[in-house]
Design a protein around this nucleic acid. Sequence first.
RNA 1: GCACCUGUAGCUCAGCUGGAUAGAGCACAAGAUUCCGAUUCUUGGUGCCGCAGGUUCGAAUCCUGUCAGGUGUGCCA
Length: 566
Amino acid sequence: MDFKEHITDKLTELTGLDRETVSAAMETPPDEKLGDLAFPCFPLAKVMRKAPPLIAQELASKLSADDLIDKVDAVGGYLNFFFNRSVFISDTVSAAMDAGNSWGSADIGRGKTVLVEYSSPNIAKPFHIGHLFSTAIGNSLARIYKFLGYDVQSLNHLGDWGTQFGKLICAYKRWGDPEIIEKDPINELLKIYVKFHEEAEKDPSLEDEAREYFKKLEDGDEEATSLWKHFRDLSLVEFNRVYDMLGVKFDSYNGEAFYSDKMDEVVRLLDEKGLLVESEGAKVVDLSDMDMPPCIILKSDGATIYATRDIAAALYRHRTYSFYKNIYVVGLPQSLHFRQIFETMRRAGWEWSKDCVHVGFGLVKLPGKNMSTRHGDVIFLEDVLNESIEKTRAIIEKNNSAVDDIDAVSKKIGIGAVLYTFLKNSREKDIVFSWDTMLDFDGESAPYCMYGYARGKSILRRAEGIDYSKADLSKAVSDDAYTLVKQLAVFGDAVRDAAEKNEPFYVTRYVTNLVKLFNKFYNTNPIMREDVPEDVKKARLAIVDAVCTVIRSALALLGIDVVESM
RNA sequence: GCACCUGUAGCUCAGCUGGAUAGAGCACAAGAUUCCGAUUCUUGGUGCCGCAGGUUCGAAUCCUGUCAGGUGUGCCA
């Protein structure tokens, strides 16, 4: 039985308002002592020509307690409802236990395909800490949409094309040593790439040489192509090592190169629509009426540009997947670019362009400077993950914890901790990288959440043999149990909010609060102690079981694995 | 210049489709375990919600202006 619907029904009948209005007006009081659900009477004041507090009192006097509602209070202009705690706990916990891993999930996405483009590192460049932002958010969104029943395709739009490959080939031919590169590909390639930029400052003719190499690559020159493929293969091996650590999987690695032969059509289509105008030798789409600079489609030398490529990719995805949503998890600095290409696609008459959405995120900065691949100022993601894993291991060893497999456990906690710091705040905030905050396991953190889960599982292990599946949940009623179960009930809301806003951190906050309440619960409500009556024990165990399941589900949506003990 | 983002406690941030005394974590201080594992829990208090106007019964939240920081701004991605 849904408490909110029940109350909405009653109020709808009483006020004569339509159901939607009543339901939308309902809110949760700021303090639990005030009640579980509130109906503000302010909007009624105009219609009824009475003061809100008076209306609240009148309504309160006409409402009586029933099976679901314990009490109705008028406080100021608010009408506050108190649920029957026993019924609420029983209903919620048994529903959650029945649902198990699917608690909080939905099927609102059935038959709809959501594309999530994320991570998208550049070939032959290091996978640095900045890439984790896109990877963490994208992976989490993919999992969240799946949980809601959508068919999700994870797309890794690799940066595997463009003039930087000309530079790389140029640098390789001058300074590359195949043996060293074989051993440590990305570092070596980065080294010669940085060297290229240093040398090019002294000798600008290098840039021309690089352009020529890229031209060769575009023309299908055999040597250039085989080098390109070699770089790409080496890079993917390294990237996959990191993706494996993070538990990230993609359905497609079609990058920029894949679309390089699909752009002529885009140019033709845009031209047919009469969108292309000549400007300073280039072909552009004029967007000045939208306060935007023009979207360049063909450069003055006739070559295509990334806008063209991205439009070609969007068109390809529309044809291939007929998507419900096409999400780009790409840094905020590119928001103008996306506004331009989305608008261009809209003008091309592609109504599906409205389903394309740029999910931006802030910068990861180093104290005092920005990360720059060109200057080699980067922090490797793998180093951060390994550092975090080592720190975790040290803590476990110090605590002498009884852990079966310290390697696996340290890995899950260490990586979870790093992921958590990227998913704990709204994505548009910049992050200033610091080893201290990255490895801060105190307070709101992945280890905190994982510890709560491990404690819960520890209690359940002690309870082996006790059948609490048919426990009388009314025996578990207490303030802390009630608050906890209320949080249990709103998991699905948090997931839906996260999807609607494309903000994984709603789930992060949700699970952190759940764990907080759970810690309090088992601190104040003893479970396996001897003096706890059997029926109370069973009821509390049922709650612990349901909570553990939800902690695991929620963390999984963030890409974080739980551990049974730590 | 123009566009977008940000400005809330000492620090890092929630809250922003207007609503009841503005909340967390960190840091700081004091306490709790005859224990179901202390990576736990409890208790402490701090805010010109950048500033100024406006709309409203009511504004951290909406509108306008303004200041500060960041990002972007035609042939890189």
